[in-house]
Design a protein around this nucleic acid. Structure first.
Length: 209
DNA sequence: CTCCCGATAT
DNA sequence: ATATCAGGAG
């Protein structure tokens, strides 16, 4: 198997900035008000479309306005709230356990610290970074399915690159003040322009309208 | 690595 | 009928 040819830093930056220009107003499409509900929504969004999460969030927010309310709820009841989304059994369990920890250890607040966030049930590297970036404005490029796919198809990283390697490469290609916007632009580009099933040359989708 | 898991697009 | 979706736990 021949060694894979990767883009130079300059070439990678050019691709990413073109994607940025295609989505100048890119932001999260998840609906949330408080950081607590942002955390819940991102946890729910694993292997599930934002549209489905947004569909269940209004009643979820109304019935569980604070971590305390969620911590006291029964798991079958939480499951009923989110049964339309994928992986809902484990998500309901994680949501309740997460809320219990938020109440007991963090006075109902959302930690502004990735190491603490990742310790919460159902919260991994990607979810933690999204909460820090969108909730607290801390620069980050969370590697989700879209960011990983785009990075590989444009050969910004190797096809077998792991999430942490992708994150490091993207963050060294771009200045810090572009991280959050690029992250959102890549998601919209992956969701609406170069979707997962597209098999054409990825540069076909890079047209700035 | 496998499992989780309903809704939607193709 | 099958692939995919803002992943994480065991």
């Amino acid at each position: 198997m021949p060694k894979e040819k990767l883009l130079s830093t300059e070439e990678a930056r050019k691709v990413l900035r073109t994607i940025n220009q295609m989505y100048p107003d890119a932001k999260s499409e998840l609906v949330w008000d408080t950081k607590f509900h942002l955390l819940c929504a991102v946890l729910m969004s694993a292997q599930t479309t934002d549209k489905m999460v947004n569909r269940v969030m209004p009643k979820f927010i109304a019935d569980y306005p604070e971590p305390q309310n969620l911590a006291q709820a029964a798991i079958p009841e939480i499951e009923q709230h989110i049964a339309q989304i994928g992986l809902y059994h484990s998500k309901a369990k994680h949501l309740k356990e997460m809320a219990e920890i938020l109440v007991e250890k963090y006075d109902g607040q959302i930690p502004q610290d990735k190491k603490l966030l990742v310790k919460l049930p159902g919260v991994g590297e990607k979810t933690a970074k999204v909460v820090l970036a969108d909730g607290y404005g801390i620069p980050a490029i969370a590697v989700d399915t879209h960011v990983a796919r785009i990075s590989k198809r444009f050969h910004i990283v190797a096809q077998n690159a792991k999430p942490l390697e992708i994150e490091k490469r993207l963050e060294e290609v771009l200045p810090k003040d572009e991280w959050i916007h690029t992250h959102h632009a890549m998601i919209l580009f992956g969701r609406y322009s170069m979707t997962a099933r597209d098999k054409e040359d990825p540069y076909t989708y890079l047209k700035v309208k």
